[in-house]
Write a protein that binds this DNA or RNA. Structure first.
Lengths: 359, 359
DNA sequence: TATTAGCACTATCAGCTGATGAGTGCTAAT
DNA sequence: ATTAGCACTCATCAGCTGATAGTGCTAATA
């Protein structure tokens, strides 16, 4: 890995009892969203420890960097380091309820969503709704998608509609202008030529190859080839617009859980920079399974008050994109993690089914 | 008109001087967003009236329902009735600056936006940005759009991609499932049949006619016709999903101008109900030019703190949709009105150009 | 008679106050 | 090693203050 991602380490050994206290504080803060004090913790822990003892332990934990106080007379809250400990050592992804599983399956596998775009949008919306956080999803990069089919449709003497279908079910339309009036018959010939030539190649490769052939045999080929290359070039010059779906932004404003967030504004502004978000989501794709970035571990400054939980989705061969949520650092990891995980799996499954149905 | 739209009337005759005071208060409140008092108004009006006199006039205006006070010791603010007076009697749509005109033209006429969807989205975003309000746009109802072209593309033995292009440049894709394996050649025959049959008919009409022919001559026709009807039926069963584009929602939260809004939440929630918004936008389409709904004049309760300014856009023949903004009632009508108006005009112009370029 | 000066009245706001309470840290006793 | 006890620290809140900006009313005035 060229770029070292900052990740908090929790190698220090803390004895059992201290761990239980820390865990108690974390879970207390997660459920109540209020700083937790020694007295209440003494009760809720039921370990027969007096508040004073708890205070001593808390003091140790503060020294170790697991806890902090907003002000002297308030209880303590966990630091990012504490959450990292919690996620690494304590949380075991517990099972989702059947009901929740069913809900997710219904949405992602609902009929009528023939196109990946629709599927992604409704899944993103679902996840935002379930978690009450903001949900971000990167769509498969058209770049690396495999061509399934390309067609040209003559709309007028100057306009041609390009329809491009990728293996994973994305459909892209583009209207291109021509100077020459090309007949539909001719366009059909061109498209079958391109389809044959570039079957099962990635759009990126195809573009590359087209550019090469334009340079190489500038003069050589016949009219068909010349037009095919010219049209192909235009057709594959797809907008590089990064497609990111963002849902649940209003939760930032209206949800109580985001209350102690410094700047909702900063986050909202960050969401406007789609390509940045895209990169963020698609980074660390090597890692399989779920990835969690807690507070300061996030590269983006405006995310450093939050935790991002994300997972890749894929078809049978390749990772296609990422789906994830951004929430407060004191989110309920115990359920958020499996929800994101499960959703990504079901999403992969649905897309795989769709793309394997071509022959 | 079956449904009477509540619209405030300002028939009462108010003498010249009183009008000037009222106007002063309205404009003062528009620029400062603060209640205006007799003292400051006395200065800014430069009519040589003492605060006391102004107070008397203000008192009269309050009685007439043009002004109100948030509390005793605050200045006065205009009522919806006052804004209605202002818009009807005072505002003369002043010219936009060249600079602004240029900006709008650039965005709407920028190349590469071959498809209406893209055009509408960026125009909506532009208007939200210019006004710093929320901008709403309804897309042309696919229902009433005129068919320009329909094509079927065989993706696999069970999947067919339908591509549907309307005269105003909307492109719709849909993947439909088939039980029978149909060759591309056959599909081409079907599509040319449909194209010929239904050239220049609205999608609504087409669907109607397909349904009729299915009932009428159930048995009669040959395989081509049968398949054509069957495929056509599926193809034109387009999602009736109302397409509304909403941009600038964050202004609701972050813009100072929305400060004295009761419930941003209510508005945001209303925006979720796309079909309601769609109807709202497309109501009163008969009216040509700009429409303005001030506060209580809005049917929707959550809009009654706001003013909506909207205008239709159209191609050479028909009204296609509506573009409008929602802002505080004390918006700067003097500039918002011409901005919306101009944008709608340019939008119409661009779409007309595009759809007239087919032959 | 229309206008205005003067004055009493009222609501908001910022700043201050002291009481309250939750929570800590330390120390000495267990 | 644990805990009870106590002094201490802040944040919060209600209540009070004076300053400010506005009004409505009345009586004087041009």
């Amino acid at each position: 890995m060229s770029k070292t991602v900052q990740r908090l380490e929790t190698k220090e050994s803390i004895d059992e009892r201290t761990q239980r206290v820390l865990r108690g504080i974390i879970e207390g803060y997660i459920t109540s969203n209020e700083p937790v004090g020694s007295r209440s913790l003494s009760k809720s822990l039921e370990m027969g420890l007096s508040p004073a003892t708890i205070r001593n332990i808390m003091s140790d934990l503060s020294d170790m960097g697991f806890l902090m106080q907003l002000h002297t007379s308030a209880g303590r809250i966990p630091t990012d380091k504490a959450y990292r400990f919690y996620v690494d050592q304590v949380v075991v992804a517990n099972q989702l309820t059947r009901k929740l599983q069913k809900r997710i399956q219904e949405v992602t596998q609902e009929g009528g969503m023939s196109q990946v775009e629709d599927l992604l949008i409704s899944t993103t919306r679902l996840l935002a709704g379930l978690t009450q956080f903001v949900c971000l999803t990167s769509s498969p990069r058209v770049e690396t998608s495999i061509l399934r089919r390309i067609e040209f449709i003559r709309l007028s003497s100057q306009q041609i509609l390009v329809v491009l279908v990728t293996r994973n079910g994305q459909v892209r339309n583009k209207i291109i202008a021509t100077t020459e009036d090309l007949s539909q018959d001719f366009l059909n010939t061109v498209s079958s030529f391109l389809n044959e030539q570039f079957h099962n190649r990635s759009l990126h490769e195809i573009r590359q190859q087209i550019l090469e052939s334009m340079v190489e045999d500038k003069e050589r080929y016949d009219r068909l080839l010349a037009q095919a290359v010219r049209l192909g070039k235009k057709a594959f010059e797809l907008e590089n617009a990064p497609e990111v779906y963002i849902e649940g932004q209003h939760n930032l404003i209206f949800s109580e859980r985001f209350r102690n967030l410094n700047s909702a504004r900063g986050l909202m502004d960050a969401f406007e920079h789609k390509s940045m978000i895209m990169n963020l989501l698609d980074s660390a794709v090597e890692a399989d399974g779920i990835q969690i970035y807690i507070g300061i571990e996030n590269e983006l400054e405006s995310f450093q008050d939050c935790t991002m939980v994300k997972a890749q989705y894929s078809d049978q061969n390749n990772v296609l994109g990422t789906i994830g949520v951004i929430g407060p650092t004191n989110m309920d990891y115990q359920t958020v993690i499996p929800v994101v995980d499960f959703t990504a799996r079901i999403l992969s499954q649905t897309i795989t089914q769709q793309s394997s149905s071509c022959d």
